[in-house]
Simulated scan of single mutants.
Amino acid sequence: MSTDLKSVYIVDDDTAVRDAIGLLLLSHGYTVRVFESGEAFLAALEPGWEGCVVLDVRMEGMSGLDVFDALRQRASELLAVFLSGHGDIAMAVGAVKQGAFDFLEKPCRDQVLLDKINDALAVASARRQSRGSHEAVHARLAKLSPREREVMERVLAGKLNKVIADELNITMRTVEVHRANVFAKMGVRSAVELAQLLAGRE
């Protein structure tokens, strides 16, 4: 799977704004989906969607802030960029403090919007890569036998083979075999590399 995210979702009840932003993004190679309301967007939303959602702060029905709250409740990976009228800036700033990516005051220049969306997509791509690496580590860990896990935890604690053998009531030779298996399955060459690989483990 490519880590180059280009998906942008536009949620705005103003047809002219939706069309203008949509055409701008399409002309720059983005994958675009537009929605005329927060309700329509949330009805279509799927758990696997990633990228950036451009939300108008003030809309008929659900506001952009309501939509953002719903995204947070669903633990969505989408990064939100708000479009705010001058009177809505305080609300947009509040949303950023709650975890939104950023906001832009309407009207904004095309390049400013493109830059902001590119920034958001770069963060989304980095998050996906980070998740992928964590998943790969967990997949390797899943291949370890219960005994190999016991040996690994003791290796990580800096214990010598002799101490590990005594604690687990096995021979040193068996410890060495398990240790070699752990290194092979985890794709490392030393205890230091193993510790570094698992440093970000959740």
Score class of each variant (00 low, 15 high):
Ser190Gln: 09
Leu45Ser: 01
Glu150Asn: 14
Trp49Gly: 12
Leu121Ile: 06
Met172Val: 15
Ala195Val: 08
Val34Lys: 10
Lys185Leu: 12
Arg33Thr: 11
Lys106Met: 08
Arg173Asp: 09
Asp13Phe: 09
Asp66Arg: 00
Thr174Leu: 02
Asp166Thr: 12
Ala95His: 03
Gly61Ser: 10
Val93Glu: 11
Asp66Cys: 04
Arg189Pro: 00
Ala157Glu: 07
Gly51Asp: 09
Arg140Thr: 05
Leu45Gly: 00
Gln129Phe: 11
Gly51Thr: 10
Ser133Cys: 08
Leu55Asp: 05
Phe68Gly: 02
Ala122Trp: 01
Ala126Trp: 06
Leu197Gly: 07
Ser37Ile: 07
Gly158Pro: 04
Val53Ser: 04
Phe41Gln: 01
Ala139Gln: 15
Glu202Val: 14
Glu60Cys: 02
Lys116Val: 03
Val81Thr: 12
Lys185Phe: 09
Phe103Cys: 03
Ile89His: 03
Leu160Met: 13
Met91Asn: 12
Leu104Tyr: 07
Gln98Cys: 08
Glu176Phe: 01
Arg189Ile: 05
Arg149Ile: 14
Met172Tyr: 01
Leu156Asp: 01
Val67Asp: 01
Ala40Leu: 01
Lys97Ala: 15
Arg109Phe: 09
Val34Glu: 13
Glu105Asp: 04
Arg72Glu: 11
Glu77Arg: 12
Ala126Ile: 07
Glu193Val: 04
Asn181Met: 05
Glu167Thr: 15
Ala136Glu: 12
Lys6Val: 12
Val175Cys: 07
Arg127His: 15
Val81Phe: 07
Lys185Cys: 08
Ala120Asp: 04
Arg131Gln: 14
Asp12Gly: 11
Glu153Met: 13
Val163Pro: 00
Ala120Tyr: 01
Leu5Phe: 00
Val182Tyr: 07
Met186Val: 13
Phe103Thr: 02
Lys143Gln: 14
Thr31Val: 11
His138Leu: 10
Pro107Ser: 08
Ser145Met: 06
Thr171Gln: 04
Leu79His: 09
Met1Leu: 14
Leu198Lys: 00
Thr3Met: 13
Glu50His: 04
Leu42Ser: 00
Asp110Gln: 13
Arg58Trp: 05
Phe35Leu: 07
Arg18Thr: 11
Gln129Tyr: 09
Asp88Tyr: 05
Glu150Lys: 15
Ser145Tyr: 08
Arg128Pro: 04
Val188Gln: 08
Ala43Cys: 00
Val53Trp: 06
Ser7Thr: 13
Arg173Trp: 09
Glu50Cys: 13
Ala124Trp: 00
Ala16Asp: 10
Lys116Asn: 13
Glu167Asn: 08
Leu168Phe: 01
Gly38Pro: 01
Ser63Cys: 04
Pro47Gln: 09
Val57Asn: 03
His134Cys: 05
Asp102Cys: 05
Gln73Val: 10
Val123Thr: 12
Phe101Ala: 02
Leu144Gln: 11
Asp4Ser: 06
Val96His: 07
Ala126Glu: 14
Leu25Trp: 06
Ser84Asp: 02
Ala184Pro: 00
Val53Met: 05
His178Asp: 12
Gln73Cys: 08
Gly85Thr: 06
Leu26Cys: 07
His138Cys: 02
His134Glu: 11
Ala40Pro: 01
Val188Phe: 05
Thr174Pro: 00
Ala199Pro: 00
